[in-house]
Computed example of a mutant assay.
Amino acid sequence: MRRSHQGALLLTGLAILLPVMVIVSIGVGAVPIPAGDILTILFDRLGLIHSDVSNQSALIVESIRLPRTLLGVIVGGALAVAGASMQGLFRNPLADPSIIGVSSGAALGAGIAIVLGGMLFANAPSLIQSYSISVLAFGGGVLTTWLVYKMGSGSNGTSVATMLLAGVAINALAGAGMGMLNYIADDTMLRNLTFWQMGSLGGATWELVMICATFLIPVMLILIRYGQVLNALLLGESEARHLGINVQKIKLTLIFLTALAVGVSVSVSGIIGFVGLVVPHLIRLAVGPDHRILLPASAMLGGILLLGADMVARTIVAPAELPIGIVTALMGAPFFLSLLWQQRKRIA
């Protein structure tokens, strides 16, 4: 079967599976809700039918599970598309958004808000205090990305190798900052900091969903439009220039969009690792490296995978909740090791 046909089948299958996973995710929890009741509640709120489902079920769906599920779809999709874009830009299958310091910078920003926020925002309006962690996390991710880009840029353009080395240094520096914050934090702060670093969708609200949708959906759509350009970059920068592509501008745009996607995602959900690494590889194994298929498929599979991980996190230790970052790490780390093993065999 031709790759294009495989890609079309994959996209169709994922487009069907995603809404199914959304319904399943809404139904799973301490109070199971049948799929029929979920659809009835949703259609009732859209004004299509009149619902006679219990108020308790309607409240759980509307106020808790639906915003959490939608946040998972958006964040998972954004992280996966950002990972696929980074792998295409760096022409490295092991690349991940965290490689340029976005995640570590966001973690440092959130850590500052958690540990020092009481002092920094003591006189700030309540709205700013409520979103201080998200704002500083986003700011930290953008700042570290800017530093990495400036260090990798020169009169001859942007050096990908220099950016990778700068990312390693920034990650180490942010790690040292987090260590210092851990040292001076009290027990409550330390617990909050630890749980934030593990990632969670438990804080989902309709406000957060709207904020994420406003930023992340346009970013994903723009990145998907760069599929053909990323295909050209796979041939090499010189070849891409011969095809009339402004490589320098493309690098800057992709880095900015990736930083925006990861920064916003991390600011609302904490650090959720391996989604940006694993999902693009799974798609690549199925249909090849064509970014015109890879990017939209990654967006859908990223949402599906994160919903699956969230359902596991909510149910495996019920009534408690496991941080979702632990679940994605348990799924992603063996896959990452298998990739390293394959790379090792090619070198050998």
Score class of each variant (00 low, 15 high):
residue 260 L to T: 13
residue 180 M to K: 02
residue 47 G to R: 05
residue 291 H to C: 10
residue 38 I to Q: 03
residue 256 F to V: 15
residue 282 L to Q: 08
residue 132 S to E: 12
residue 143 L to K: 05
residue 165 L to T: 05
residue 318 A to T: 00
residue 289 P to K: 15
residue 23 I to C: 08
residue 112 I to V: 15
residue 294 L to Y: 14
residue 274 F to S: 05
residue 318 A to K: 01
residue 125 P to D: 03
residue 209 V to S: 06
residue 207 E to F: 15
residue 45 R to T: 06
residue 310 D to M: 06
residue 329 A to Y: 01
residue 144 T to Q: 11
residue 217 I to N: 02
residue 112 I to P: 12
residue 65 R to T: 12
residue 244 G to T: 05
residue 245 I to Y: 13
residue 297 A to G: 03
residue 132 S to V: 11
residue 167 G to C: 00
residue 31 V to F: 12
residue 226 Y to V: 02
residue 41 I to C: 02
residue 190 L to E: 13
residue 297 A to Y: 09
residue 5 H to Y: 04
residue 81 V to F: 04
residue 277 L to F: 13
residue 129 Q to V: 09
residue 43 F to L: 12
residue 274 F to N: 06
residue 77 G to A: 08
residue 239 E to I: 02
residue 75 V to M: 04
residue 119 M to F: 13
residue 174 A to S: 15
residue 156 N to D: 09
residue 147 L to C: 04
residue 120 L to R: 14
residue 183 Y to C: 03
residue 305 L to S: 02
residue 194 T to H: 03
residue 272 I to D: 00
residue 47 G to W: 07
residue 293 I to T: 15
residue 140 G to C: 14
residue 215 F to N: 06
residue 96 D to N: 12
residue 78 A to F: 03
residue 302 G to E: 07
residue 21 M to P: 04
residue 167 G to Q: 02
residue 167 G to I: 01
residue 308 G to V: 09
residue 152 G to S: 05
residue 210 M to S: 06
residue 72 G to H: 05
residue 295 L to M: 11
residue 176 A to Y: 13
residue 19 P to S: 12
residue 47 G to S: 06
residue 175 G to Y: 04
residue 346 R to F: 12
residue 168 V to F: 03
residue 147 L to A: 08
residue 38 I to C: 03
residue 73 V to L: 11
residue 146 W to S: 14
residue 222 I to Q: 05
residue 229 V to W: 01
residue 278 V to I: 11
residue 17 L to S: 14
residue 124 A to L: 14
residue 166 A to H: 02
residue 130 S to E: 01
residue 189 M to R: 14
residue 125 P to V: 06
residue 157 G to V: 00
residue 26 I to T: 00
residue 283 I to S: 08
residue 12 T to W: 15
residue 170 I to Y: 09
residue 42 L to G: 09
residue 303 G to A: 01
residue 63 S to E: 14
residue 338 S to R: 14
residue 3 R to H: 10
residue 65 R to G: 09
residue 21 M to G: 10
residue 70 L to C: 14
residue 56 Q to S: 01
residue 337 L to E: 08
residue 84 A to Q: 10
residue 239 E to K: 09
residue 82 A to L: 10
residue 210 M to K: 13
residue 301 L to K: 12
residue 7 G to Q: 06
residue 51 S to K: 07
residue 148 V to T: 01
residue 159 S to Q: 07
residue 278 V to P: 11
residue 300 M to F: 07
residue 12 T to H: 03
residue 170 I to N: 08
residue 94 L to W: 15
residue 3 R to L: 05
residue 289 P to Q: 14
residue 177 G to C: 11
residue 271 I to Q: 08
residue 53 V to E: 00
residue 50 H to F: 04
residue 14 L to F: 02
residue 318 A to G: 03
residue 209 V to D: 01
residue 106 A to P: 04
residue 83 G to E: 06
residue 50 H to Y: 08
residue 9 L to P: 01
residue 34 P to D: 09
residue 126 S to K: 12
residue 315 T to Q: 04
residue 16 I to F: 07
residue 31 V to L: 08
residue 39 L to K: 07
residue 135 V to Q: 03
residue 297 A to Q: 03
residue 77 G to M: 07
residue 336 F to L: 07
residue 340 L to A: 11
residue 41 I to M: 00
residue 204 A to K: 06
residue 20 V to Y: 13
residue 194 T to C: 02
residue 20 V to I: 15
residue 269 S to T: 05
residue 317 V to E: 10
residue 137 A to S: 11
residue 71 L to K: 09
residue 75 V to C: 11
residue 70 L to G: 10
residue 95 A to I: 07
residue 11 L to W: 06
